[in-house]
Design a protein around this nucleic acid. Structure first.
Lengths: 338, 338
DNA sequence: ACAATAATCCGAAACGTTTCGGTATTTGTT
DNA sequence: AACAAATACCGAAACGTTTCGGATTATTGT
């Protein structure tokens, strides 16, 4: 509980000098600096960041806003891995991380700007937020720097990091086409996810390139949820026996499709090929192992935090978009059609 | 950026009155309160928590110290799920959460007390820390309230939440014995984990109860890591063909054992029964699905945060130990021996 | 009508820092 | 020797809040 005052008194100097000595300013002699450092050590001093932040108007804190940070995120470890990256990067740059967990209820009570100002964060990273979330508009209007993960929003102080979702979807579908598939369905996420639109575009683009007609009814909305995907896939596959492959916008939904296929007595990959998206941990443990599009979630988090901190420190305009690579990981759920 | 001063000026009252009005004190008339609230609204005021914390000497912030918050935690979602519980509970009580991620390198540079004081946290929750971690001693000595997850440490301001690890291990082993197994090995975690000692004790106790001799060489150290468990299990099972079951101190290690068994041509569960511990998400996706001891990780987190906040608010001594239930989840990796 | 009490309000200090502007001392220059 | 410049230090204000003690006015009981 020793303060800078205590040190000043003990060392017989002013608080100004203590502050300047401890912060490495040049206008303090080597002798007094040594003395001050010694007494600081003795008194077991550690600075009060609150006071510092207050006067400097800089908290060196960034907010991490995860929409619905909850157990359902436990299956795809997406959130967690991104968070690890953010955490490491923030630590590297000397920023603290404070967790904002909101849900729709809380959002109604408190505006985004209020939330940020109350907790005095310098910037925020947003993850898992839907495109129609009211916070997005607020973020763009506010002058608090923000970077989104997997939502393509831009603005004066707003950037995002994502992977090339169109490309990812294209290589997934191309893989299926190369294997000889022609009747390829898509299990997409809900409409309000940015990645859904992109992945769908990639799917369609690749089909057109191979001269395969895009059939609206082959695109199913699985809401990014495993059970929903399973139910929808069951009904769909039951009716559409000619479908030989399905591209899923997420691994989790792919798991649902696999379950549905199994229930229908379809052998994977002989009767039905499946490719997912995300390369979640689980995808290696299904049998057969899931063919999927891999993206480096940790790196996404790392880049997001890096972008934000650079926005915070530089006045020169920072790169506000980062598109990371993704790649096809061929495993056991894809094979030529019979 | 409106402050309490701006409101005072605008409303024509003193800052004292504004503060007291906004904080619901009684010595302000209904009229002025209305006025102040209105102008606060108009100026889009939000309080500066830094200033508040500084003067009140309360930050309403709790630190979450996760040792090595990194990608390796991605497989068992343990950390993540506990965190969700902590987060929810902290939010319920009106506390903010700041992430401390440390590793052994950083710990050498900065003491625990320094870390806490710098970030002005009122208390901390520790997770995934080893028994020989130097921070533990510091925690007990310091007067900063702390609760551990899965480490049984007690002190004036220190509590912990865990599940009944001895009991869990006992019901796991009892299940194997009831199936008819007699030669049961144990894949334990590293010595520095508190849960290792407990689970081992449960294992031994149950064997003794069934009049089976405890063989030291049947207890293997898999370091809580899947690849280590796999290697060790391979060597062990190769030499000890009479072993018909192995109890693992974690699901992750159980996965390793399963892989080793498969490589040795052992059929699960016909040739080898396996039971894990934790009930991680993955355990449902192996084939066959893993029989394991389930514990509610979310609840552990929730209880931990609840305990901490109650320590923080009450001066009356709080319950400092919480032991949660766990239960046997029978799935596909256990069967009678041939 | 008068004191006692209640109801409202406010000034100023405090929390622990940083930093602007300034002063005193020493050194360097001619 | 006189002056400029560099060096080492410090006082006080500022950041935005809370809160103690007091001050002013209105209400009450007799």
């Amino acid at each position: 509980m020793a303060t800078i005052k205590d040190i000043a008194k003990e060392a017989g100097v002013s608080v100004t000098t203590v502050s300047r000595a401890l912060n490495g300013y040049s206008d303090v002699s080597a002798g007094t600096r040594k003395l001050i450092e010694k007494t600081a050590q003795e008194l077991n001093y550690s600075p009060n960041t609150l006071a510092r932040s207050l006067v400097m108007n800089k908290s060196r804190t960034i907010g991490l806003l995860v929409s619905e940070l909850n157990r359902s995120g436990a299956k795809d470890m997406f959130t967690y891995e991104v968070m690890c990256g953010i955490n490491d990067s923030a630590a590297d740059e000397g920023y603290d991380l404070v967790l904002f967990s909101t849900n729709t209820v809380k959002q109604k009570q408190k505006s985004y700007t209020q939330l940020c100002r109350e907790r005095q964060v310098e910037g925020v990273i947003m993850q898992g937020i839907k495109m129609d979330d009211p916070y997005i508009k607020e973020v763009i209007e506010s002058n608090i720097p923000c970077v989104f993960v997997d939502v393509e929003v831009e603005g004066e102080n707003v950037g995002y990091v994502t992977t090339d979702n169109i490309f990812g979807a294209q290589i997934a579908v191309k893989h299926l086409i190369n294997l000889g598939h022609r009747n390829i369905a898509m299990m997409n996420g809900h409409d309000q996810a940015h990645v859904s639109a992109k992945r769908r575009k990639g799917y369609e683009r690749e089909l057109i390139e191979a001269d395969i007609a895009v059939q609206e009814e082959y695109i199913i909305n699985g809401e990014f949820l495993e059970p929903v995907a399973e139910t929808k896939a069951y009904r769909f596959l039951e009716k559409n026996k000619h479908i030989t492959a399905v591209f899923c916008a997420s691994d989790l939904m792919a798991l649902g499709v696999m379950k549905a296929a199994t229930r229908l007595g379809l052998k994977i990959p002989e009767d039905l090929s499946i490719v997912g998206f995300d390369n979640i941990v689980l995808s290696e443990y299904t049998s057969p192992q899931l063919t999927t599009i891999g993206q480096d979630k940790y790196q996404m988090g790392y880049e997001a935090a890096k972008m934000l901190t650079s926005m915070l420190t530089n006045r020169i305009p920072t790169q506000k978009i980062a598109t990371l690579d993704n790649s096809l990981i061929i495993r056991g759920t894809t094979a030529p059609p019979k």
